Simulated assay, not measured.
Amino acid sequence: MRENKVAIVTGASRLKGIGAAICRELAVAGFDIFFTYWTEYDKEMPWGMLNEEPQALKDELEKMGVKSFSMELDLTKENSPQKLFESLTLKWQSADVLVNNAAYSTSNDFSNLTTAELDRHYLVNIRATTLMSIEFARRFNKNSGGRIINMTSGQFRGPMPGELAYATTKGAIDALTITLSAELASRGITVNAVNPGPTDTGWMDDETKKALLQRFPFGRVGKTEDAAKLVKFLASEEAEWITGQILHSEGGFLR
């Protein structure tokens, strides 16, 4: 019996989050799932999370008929990619897909941004994404079919006042995606990025949602499954000729 392909998804702490939605969509496509989470960060954020959410996601995925493993992982640590892949190889020989979904985001601007806060954004959004991608590529042992999918936020489509550190570090993911795609094509790995646009993951209050609705031609805000379905396509065999692209799954959002 043919074994399922394996997908790694970082930053899947919350059941309402994009990471969890990506895990579900990849499970629908028949991937076994290895996901990471970091409860300390999400508990500090306004949306919060419950301790049992990662286990609930794992149980949900297994009920869908795939294997699922998870680990709590602090992506600010230099050795986090090695720890992840060492843990993964105890379950599977290798992975076929890496989705760099984890992100660090706090509100700040030129008047209050500190060195420490900028560093925290850099460590998760840029360093971890880069090093995780490198570790995946070095360990990829097939002739083709490898997929790296980064999550970006459309920084080059318009400014993000009040999110200076986030916009700066997430914007660099576009450059990483384009250059890394050229380097890894010979190894049979595609590299793309997905911009989900404003997505309701539990952070939108009624006032925010009302303001955003006016800027979506379809009359609704983004759902987590919108971007997750695009990730599922990019992870598929049908997407083998797509690489080095930043794809915008944001329903025609007007800036």
Rank of each mutant, 00 (worst) to 15 (best):
I178T: 13
G17N: 08
D119F: 00
Y166V: 06
S133T: 11
Y166F: 15
A56Q: 14
I173W: 00
N143E: 15
I149W: 10
V231G: 07
M45P: 00
E60Q: 13
E44P: 00
N141E: 13
E250R: 00
D174M: 05
P198T: 08
A102F: 03
T190V: 03
E86I: 05
G251W: 04
V6E: 06
D200R: 08
M132R: 04
N125M: 13
G244M: 08
N195F: 00
R120K: 15
R120L: 13
R215Y: 10
E86S: 15
K223H: 13
M71Q: 15
T168E: 02
V194A: 02
A182V: 05
M151H: 04
I33D: 10
M71L: 15
T39W: 00
G162I: 07
R138D: 12
T190H: 04
P81M: 12
I148G: 11
T243S: 15
N150P: 04
R220T: 12
N195M: 01
A12H: 11
E86Y: 08
S111D: 12
W92R: 04
G145Q: 10
A12M: 09
D109E: 09
I126K: 02
A7K: 07
R220M: 06
D109N: 15
M151F: 15
A235H: 11
N125K: 10
E40N: 11
S181F: 03
K63S: 10
M45V: 10
S111Q: 10
W47Y: 13
L113A: 11
K5R: 15
A27N: 05
G222R: 05
A182Y: 11
Y37H: 14
E117G: 01
T129H: 02
N143W: 00
F31N: 02
E40S: 14
L254P: 00
R220S: 11
G244D: 06
N79W: 03
G158P: 06
Y37D: 01
S236A: 08
L15P: 07
T36F: 04
I126R: 04
N141V: 00
N192R: 06
K232R: 15
G222L: 06
N51P: 07
K16Y: 01
K229V: 01
Q245N: 14
C23Q: 05
V28D: 12
G30Y: 09
T36P: 04
Y104E: 11
F85N: 07
L57A: 08
V194W: 03
T177A: 02
N112F: 08
N108P: 03
Q155S: 14
V99Y: 04
E40D: 12
E250M: 06
W203I: 14
T169M: 12
E237W: 02
V6G: 10
A172L: 09
G146Q: 08
Q82C: 06
M132N: 10
I134Y: 03
K210D: 14
I22W: 05
E44T: 14
K16L: 12
G202F: 13
G65K: 13
V6H: 10
S105P: 01
S13T: 15
G171E: 09
L254H: 11
K142W: 07
A175C: 12
G197W: 05
F136I: 12
T169Y: 05
E40W: 00
M71C: 14
